[in-house]
Nucleic acid binder design. Structure first.
Length: 346
DNA sequence: AATACGTGGTT
DNA sequence: TAACCAAGTAT
């Protein structure tokens, strides 16, 4: 690229003052990069502040329980990031003497750290020349050179790396990675790019060819499936009952209400058998309210019903994994945002 | 290689 | 409004 200097000059004048940009602390940079995976700055910023306040060092994060980490992560989504964050904090504290590796190949061994994040950390914390290729960079480069390769094919990354490597070696690696990502995030946006003030305007091939809106190219389309979740909110005195999700799939290790999943929409009557096999004493159950909510995830649409049940007899659960808590204590546990919002609405 | 994994915002 | 997008990683 002939315009690397224009790009970095533009960045120095126009960068957003973000907290992880004014530090060389690998812990803070790693934390910010995990939070920002598939997440915009506006959404992640508050979480970053909360995590740094609660866990100022990697050792403090390692001391926490996974449940506490998930609770602080609640609402941010992609919860494997929080589970891996905690795993890596323990790993760094216990196996790496509390010191983050300063080589990309070592960082790649950490849970939750992939090619992008490893490159981001070594460049921002140690100023090493590894291009951090995220969605922004794919977009900027695919437009600047008018590349029609699908960016969601893993093989394409290599082509972009070969373009970016000589560029990052012309300048300061941290500055370069910050600049090109910032350009993608603030000017070279997917919709309504602000080309008129872009430092790369003159030589941008997609602008010249009028293919801006066609770049970058993506091939894959996500397929969604429908699921039907029937949640039991059983209220006994001031208490409710929750359980932890386990195994693979959505919301692993988060809490939820006792769940009956069905193949199709269900109502109170045709759930009675399933409820009876969940709780052994349902005689005094009094259905007071029923709430329906649709919750859309990337790969599935959840049609959720909440059955609010009052009982004067302590419910006896068939399986042992139900936890009895006071409703007012529900804020202490990590829930999917759907459940959290529902409980807060009571 | 293909698919799953959250949530909030926009068109 | 269904589809797409946003600082990706793991399997």
């Amino acid at each position: 690229m002939e315009n690397v200097l224009d790009l970095t000059k533009w960045y120095k004048k126009n960068f957003r003052d973000l907290p992880w940009r004014t530090t060389n602390d690998p812990y803070k940079i790693w934390l910010s990069e995990i939070i920002l995976q598939q997440t915009q700055v506006v959404q992640g910023l508050a979480y970053y502040h909360r995590f740094i306040t609660e866990y100022p060092t990697v050792a403090k994060l390692a001391e926490a329980s996974e449940e506490q980490v998930l609770r602080l992560w609640q609402g941010l989504g992609y919860y494997s990031r929080a589970r891996n964050l905690h795993k890596t904090a323990k790993l760094i504290t216990n196996e790496y003497q509390g010191v983050f590796p300063n080589e990309k190949c070592e960082l790649l061994k950490l849970p939750g750290v992939g090619d992008y994040t490893a490159s981001a950390i070594v460049s921002f914390a140690f100023n090493k020349p590894h291009p951090a290729i995220d969605g922004n960079v794919f977009r900027v480069i695919s437009r600047y050179y008018d590349i029609n390769l699908p960016i969601d094919e893993p093989a394409t990354r290599k082509v972009f790396l070969e373009i970016l490597q000589p560029m990052i070696e012309q300048t300061s690696p941290a500055l370069f990675n910050n600049a090109i990502m910032e350009l993608g995030a603030t000017l070279c946006k997917n919709d309504h790019p602000n080309c008129s003030v872009c430092p790369l305007y003159i030589d941008c091939q997609a602008r010249i060819n009028e293919t801006i809106a066609l770049r970058p190219v993506k091939n894959k389309k996500v397929k969604k499936r429908n699921r039907y979740f029937n949640y039991l909110l059983i209220r006994y005195k001031d208490n409710i009952y929750i359980q932890k999700r386990f195994g693979k799939g959505i919301w692993e290790n988060l809490f939820e209400l006792p769940l009956i999943e069905t193949e199709a929409p269900a109502d109170w009557k045709n759930l009675s058998n399933s409820i009876a096999s969940t709780v052994s004493n349902t005689k005094g159950f009094n259905l007071v309210k029923q709430t329906s909510l649709k919750h859309v995830l990337t790969h599935q649409t959840l049609f959720c019903q909440f059955f609010e049940i009052y009982t004067t007899e302590k419910p006896v659960f068939v399986s042992e994994n139900c936890l009895e808590i006071e409703l007012k204590d529900s804020t202490k546990y990590p829930f999917p945002i759907l459940i959290s919002n529902f409980l807060l609405s009571l």
